[in-house]
Nucleic acid binder design. Structure first.
Lengths: 122, 122
DNA sequence: CAAACATTTTAGTTTAAACTAAATTATCAT
DNA sequence: ATGATAATTTAGTTTAAACTAAAATGTTTG
């Protein structure tokens, strides 16, 4: 548990993702489907932050990338998080925080990355 | 330990303050003197955040206000923090983070709140 | 190879956090 | 009251986080 991890855990959005990949490995797309209020891109960026902090692992398989929590990396914090997720009151609190904490542009509607032409090589 | 506390712990500055008032009660001014790179006002605001999160208690005595950590409120996190503070490597990390994390206007120099006229009633 | 799918990356926008400077409040001493 | 000291509060500034939209990357399938 390094100081950086505390920063990562501060975000309700990242905690929400963490909860999803706590007990099972999930593909990025599956994680995104569980939080339709943000774009796929946003989820991908948060997943990156979690991986860089060493809290989550990624595994590529075919077109998918599967993510799961590295529970060993949490130490005593694992307990705190699990208790939070079990507690109904805290579930409500998380919902409220996600509402509040939404940053970036004002809420719009349909949240998948929109394709357009699809040309241009690098 | 509520979700809000995780947010509060995310700030290196607040963790620095917390460390100071972990084992002893200190006046706001004493705390500020220990971190001369920020103004008294900035310290006061962070103290407020810590008190509002229930992590720190304040006691008024004469012209002073004494602050101390409410260690009961930390649960398993207390251990994490104490280990962080004991660890020499983490001490270096904290210094680096404080350097990095300095927000607000670019660094200037002398950091006490400057007085001016001092009139004007409310 | 093109098209579809799964995901990441980039560039730019909005919002909130951490801060500063100054003003204000509060207490004590003269 | 006036002044000195201790701290808080307010208003405004800067920076970084969370996000969006679009483009890019990589993989599988026809």
């Amino acid at each position: 548990m390094m100081p950086a991890a505390l920063e990562v855990l501060a975000s309700p959005r990242r905690r929400e993702i963490l909860r999803l990949v706590w007990n099972e490995e999930l593909a990025a797309g599956t994680i995104h489907r569980a939080m339709p209020d943000v774009t796929f891109g946003a989820v991908s960026l948060q997943l990156r932050a979690l991986v860089e902090a060493g809290l989550v692992e990624a595994r590529a398989e075919q077109r998918h990338r599967f993510y799961r929590a590295r529970r060993e990396a949490f130490g005593p914090v694992a307990e705190i998080l699990e208790r939070m997720w079990d507690d109904k009151l805290w579930k409500l609190k998380l919902a409220a925080e996600l509402e509040e904490t939404r940053r970036g542009p004002k809420p719009r509607r349909n949240r998948t990355t929109k394709k357009r032409s699809g040309k241009r090589g690098r």
